[in-house]
Amino acid sequence: MISSEQVVQTAKSIAAIQQADGGVPWPEGHVDAWNHIECLMAMSVAGLTDEVRQGYAYLLRHQRPDGSWPAKLQDGEPLESNGESNHAAYLAVGVWHELLVTGDEDFAARLWPAVKLALDYVVGLQTDRGEIVWERDARGRASDYALLTGCSSIHQGLRCGVALAERLRDPQPHWELAADRLAHVVRAHPEAFADKSRFSMDWYYPVLGGAVRGPEAFELLHRDWATFVVPGLGIRCVSDQPWVTGAETCELVLALDALGDQGRARALFGDMQHLRHEDGSYWTGWQFANRKHFPHERSGYTAAAVILAADALQGLTAAAGIFRDAAAPAAPAAPATNPDACGCTPARA
């Protein structure tokens, strides 16, 4: 474990890269909404409220009328204008997290119109079967395929949106239905998603995002544990390279914590601490065949994942359970409105 003082030090390493306009960039210099929000969540854990609120103001300035954000922004201008569904969905996670940490319902109410726009953009990309395609391009055309990691994260976004809607007394039942349908497809229809199975995120994200829990989740993680986990170092980013990454390792920590598997969660969290820099920041990854940091950078999103994992394991804030709570309250066998839309029947599901 790292101490609360080390958590603050790490959060300050994120604040140190935050730009004057409030954006939290990748090492390459661009901002995307998903990683930006993750960094805001991490700084909130450490009590850096001013920096966090500047970051949400940045999101409000750059949200488009359809509810999306450009996939990449640099110096306030779009580098890539497509709008990714998982980016839009993560605003609900961030705002719900901020409300849990601070109790500031006025802040949540100010962000609520943006959350509604964003999640309605997301559910507008849901197919008849239930998966949510990954983007609209710069001309507004929906993609023709979905991503398992993205949809798993979207599932958490929809669940957080439902919780936020209930708290603010503005129910959005269509989001809950969309989440139920999406969870079913994640659990039962691997053919719905583009094959990205070499990436560890496609392995554990269905658990992290709450679509898969219980015995099925343990079985899923057991299946590829030896493929991705490198004892003493963390987990691989991709199955075919000798490269462990801190963010993916800490996300697996969060998934294990969500299942109550504290032993393996804590062990993995300890294993990845070799990536910690003396200033509290974290190297993105370690190429263990060449014994070099790769890429040669320290990333805000890696530091953010460490802080969120530390919060989950140590209960530093009232938002420590935000990943545990992403699971569906009930797991319907098939989409409630049209059981045959995905090609299943309840008896077979």
Score class of each variant (00 low, 15 high):
267 A>M: 11
263 G>F: 14
261 D>S: 11
259 L>C: 09
258 A>V: 00
252 L>C: 01
260 G>R: 03
243 W>N: 13
264 R>D: 12
260 G>S: 10
252 L>W: 12
242 P>C: 01
268 L>A: 04
262 Q>T: 15
262 Q>F: 14
263 G>L: 15
267 A>C: 09
261 D>C: 10
259 L>D: 09
252 L>I: 07
252 L>Y: 12
257 D>V: 07
247 A>H: 08
247 A>P: 02
270 G>W: 11
270 G>N: 13
252 L>F: 12
244 V>D: 00
258 A>Y: 01
265 A>T: 02
255 A>C: 07
267 A>T: 13
244 V>E: 03
268 L>I: 00
265 A>K: 03
265 A>Y: 05
254 L>S: 01
245 T>E: 12
258 A>W: 00
250 C>S: 05
255 A>F: 02
241 Q>P: 02
260 G>V: 06
267 A>V: 11
264 R>C: 09
252 L>H: 06
260 G>E: 05
247 A>M: 05
251 E>W: 15
241 Q>V: 08
256 L>T: 07
249 T>E: 04
262 Q>G: 15
243 W>M: 07
240 D>Q: 08
257 D>C: 11
269 F>G: 06
267 A>K: 13
257 D>S: 14
246 G>N: 00
268 L>S: 04
262 Q>P: 08
243 W>R: 07
241 Q>W: 13
243 W>H: 15
258 A>E: 06
249 T>V: 01
261 D>W: 10
246 G>R: 02
259 L>I: 01
254 L>I: 12
247 A>G: 06
266 R>N: 11
245 T>H: 11
266 R>G: 15
242 P>N: 08
246 G>P: 06
264 R>W: 09
268 L>E: 03
265 A>S: 00
249 T>L: 00
258 A>G: 14
242 P>M: 02
266 R>F: 12
250 C>M: 08
259 L>N: 10
250 C>N: 09
241 Q>S: 08
267 A>P: 03
245 T>F: 07
247 A>F: 05
263 G>Q: 15
267 A>H: 10
248 E>T: 08
256 L>I: 05
244 V>A: 01
244 V>I: 10
250 C>K: 00
246 G>D: 03
268 L>R: 02
257 D>G: 13
265 A>H: 02
251 E>A: 07
259 L>T: 06
266 R>Q: 13
251 E>Q: 15
241 Q>C: 04
263 G>E: 15
265 A>M: 05
270 G>P: 07
249 T>R: 03
265 A>C: 04
240 D>V: 08
245 T>R: 11
255 A>L: 04
256 L>E: 07
268 L>Q: 04
254 L>V: 08
245 T>K: 10
248 E>L: 13
264 R>E: 14
240 D>K: 05
262 Q>C: 12
256 L>R: 04
244 V>K: 04
240 D>N: 11
264 R>H: 13
267 A>R: 14
242 P>G: 04
243 W>Q: 12
255 A>S: 12
257 D>Q: 13
247 A>D: 09
264 R>M: 13
253 V>Y: 04
268 L>W: 02
262 Q>W: 14
250 C>V: 00
267 A>F: 06
259 L>Q: 11
263 G>M: 14
242 P>R: 04
247 A>N: 08
259 L>S: 09
250 C>P: 08
256 L>D: 07
257 D>W: 05
268 L>H: 01
252 L>N: 01
251 E>C: 09
265 A>E: 02
270 G>S: 10
269 F>R: 05
265 A>W: 07
262 Q>L: 14
245 T>W: 07
254 L>G: 00
256 L>P: 09
266 R>P: 02
247 A>V: 01
